[in-house]
Amino acid sequence: MTQLLEAAANVFGQVGYTAASTNAIAREAGVSPGTLYQFFPNKEAIAVELGDRFLHRMREAHTQVFTEANAALPLAEMLDAVLDPLIEFNCRNPALLALIKSSDIPGKLAEDHDALHESLLTRVGELISVYVPAMPAAQRTRTATMAFALFKAGLELVLAHEGAERKAYVAELKASMYRYLEPVLGAGCCDPAGGAADLPSAGDGARH
Rank of each mutant, 00 (worst) to 15 (best):
L75M: 04
N42K: 13
A71Q: 01
C91T: 12
E88A: 11
G51I: 03
Y37V: 00
A29N: 12
K101F: 00
S103V: 00
K101V: 02
L79D: 01
N93C: 00
L36M: 02
P33Q: 07
D104L: 14
G34A: 15
G30S: 11
Q64C: 05
F66Q: 00
V82H: 06
A71I: 01
E49S: 12
E60S: 13
S102E: 08
K43I: 02
D84F: 08
E88L: 10
P33C: 07
L83W: 03
R53A: 15
E88T: 09
A47F: 10
L99Y: 11
L96E: 08
F66L: 03
T67D: 05
E28K: 12
F40N: 00
P94E: 05
R57L: 12
L83G: 04
A69M: 02
E68A: 11
R57P: 09
Q38R: 13
E49D: 15
N90Y: 10
T35G: 06
F39S: 15
L99S: 09
D104V: 15
M78V: 04
P74F: 03
R53H: 15
A69L: 00
T63V: 04
E88S: 11
P41N: 08
D104R: 15
F54N: 15
A69N: 06
A61H: 13
F54W: 15
I100M: 12
P33F: 10
P33K: 10
A61L: 12
A47I: 07
H56P: 04
H62T: 12
S103D: 10
A71F: 01
P85H: 07
T67I: 02
N42W: 11
R53T: 11
L99Q: 09
T67M: 04
M58N: 06
L96S: 07
V65M: 02
E77N: 04
A47C: 13
R27L: 14
N90I: 04
D84C: 06
F66N: 00
L99P: 11
I46E: 09
A71K: 07
A29K: 12
L55N: 12
A45C: 00
D52S: 09
R53W: 11
N90A: 13
V65D: 05
F66I: 02
A45I: 00
A29T: 13
